[in-house]
Amino acid sequence: MANKGYFIITDISGYTEFLTASELEHAQQALQGLFDVQVKHIQFPLKISGFRGDAIFIYTPEACFVNPQSFLETLENLYIVFSNTLHQMQFNTTCECRACRNIKNLDLKMVIHYGEYIVQKLGDREELLGADVIVPHRMLKNEVIEKTGIKAYALFSEAAASALGLQHLCHPLAAYKETYEHIGEVNMLVHDLKSAWEREQARRKIIVEPGNAWIKIEVNTPFPPSVIWDVITTPALEGPLLGLEYVKRIDELGGRTRPDSNFHCAHSSGDFFNKIVDWKPFEYYTTIQQFASGLEYFRTIRLEPDGAITKFVMLVSKPVQQTPEGFREFLESAARQGYERLPVAIQELVESGKIKVN
């Protein structure tokens, strides 16, 4: 039976020029470091299918991502760790050889396609089969850098962009197309990955530390961080978990959830508002939670993976304002009652087929 999913290839830009114009030993060390950091961070729900020289072929079933934003941010996170490693190599070396001087010319590009595939077992290996599997390999042959000037890019086929609703998540996107033998014309969209790295460098960390928390709730959950993140950041899933009547985004930013996104949450005990102030996908996010009375506090949700278990942690700061009698107990009880159901709620989603965890 055919599956549907996303195919991703990561490829180091400038690889051939770097290798041929540099001392082999130092060039190989640099390339190995950049290759290894990718492999280390390609984790569930991404799966490595194979290696093609300096390229890594990755795939993921579509059901592994409930929220398309999570797919995009998974790719951006991969670029961020690559770029951070590249910058550290430049900063930490005092070597004047050609290889070390030329590191700055390297970068990472990705191509992404969506379609059908079959997994074929070949001994202890798995091979993907299908016409759609061929497309991303062809997409590597392009003139995106020459025609757009974007060196670090994620190139999405029209099929992938449509499945993700990419135009609602990324601005700006550059239109691009190529014609390939046996495939025909492929319409594509280019996302500048450098913008994700720059956004991460500019991000201001705002987090409630455990030692300063007024309320602290911990729940051990036998699911990977990406699955839990999808549930707790998708209003249609988190709302019922917390007994909310509805969660409605009310800011005018549009696009993806990010700092300054604002949500109106309706609860039988009273409405409140959640404004995102810090957002680090799959690790933590922080909101200012405010009630109509003006009472407000910071709330940080953290995910701490430890092998097969991920610890969900909610940390609430003490409000500056005077709180009504019994408010702290009420807030902790309501949050604990909801979030302690997280493992059961995710298991129900898995059993219903709405989420895939392997």
Rank of each mutant, 00 (worst) to 15 (best):
Q28P: 04
I206Y: 06
H137R: 14
F291C: 00
Y176G: 06
P324T: 02
I228V: 03
N67R: 03
N77C: 09
H26T: 08
Y297D: 03
A99Q: 02
D132Y: 07
K40Q: 14
V357S: 06
I48H: 13
R249D: 13
N77E: 12
I8A: 03
Q322R: 07
P259Q: 08
H137A: 13
G50S: 05
T310A: 10
H113C: 12
P240H: 05
L303N: 01
P281Y: 14
E62N: 09
A266C: 11
T310F: 04
L193E: 05
R125A: 11
T300G: 04
C170T: 14
K47L: 07
N84S: 15
A213H: 05
I217V: 12
C95D: 12
L315F: 05
E17F: 07
G239Q: 00
R203H: 13
N220Q: 13
R302H: 04
T221C: 11
P259V: 08
E146C: 01
G115V: 14
P240C: 06
E218C: 03
T300H: 05
C64F: 05
Y180F: 08
A196E: 11
S22Q: 10
K280Y: 10
A213S: 12
I150L: 08
R302V: 02
R258N: 08
G115T: 07
S83D: 15
T234L: 03
R341D: 12
D230K: 12
N212C: 08
N220W: 11
K109E: 06
D230T: 04
P319M: 06
N212A: 15
Y339P: 01
I118V: 15
I134Y: 10
N84A: 14
I250Q: 06
E351F: 01
Q337H: 15
F44Y: 14
L78G: 00
P222G: 06
V144D: 07
L166I: 01
T300A: 07
G243A: 03
E198R: 02
T233W: 09
D260F: 11
K356C: 14
E304D: 11
L75N: 09
L349N: 07
N102Y: 06
S269A: 10
T257R: 13
I56D: 02
L24G: 02
T16V: 04
I276K: 11
I217A: 10
N105I: 07
H26L: 15
V350E: 02
I12Y: 03
F51G: 04
A131Y: 14
P172I: 02
E200T: 15
I183N: 10
D54V: 03
Y297V: 01
E304R: 14
N187V: 12
N220H: 15
S352L: 04
T287N: 00
P319V: 08
C64D: 08
E348R: 13
G307D: 07
A308R: 15
K280D: 14
N84G: 08
S269C: 14
R256W: 15
C95S: 04
N102C: 10
P45Q: 06
V316W: 09
D260C: 12
K109M: 10
V316F: 03
L189S: 05
Y180R: 03
P222Q: 07
N105M: 12
G243K: 05
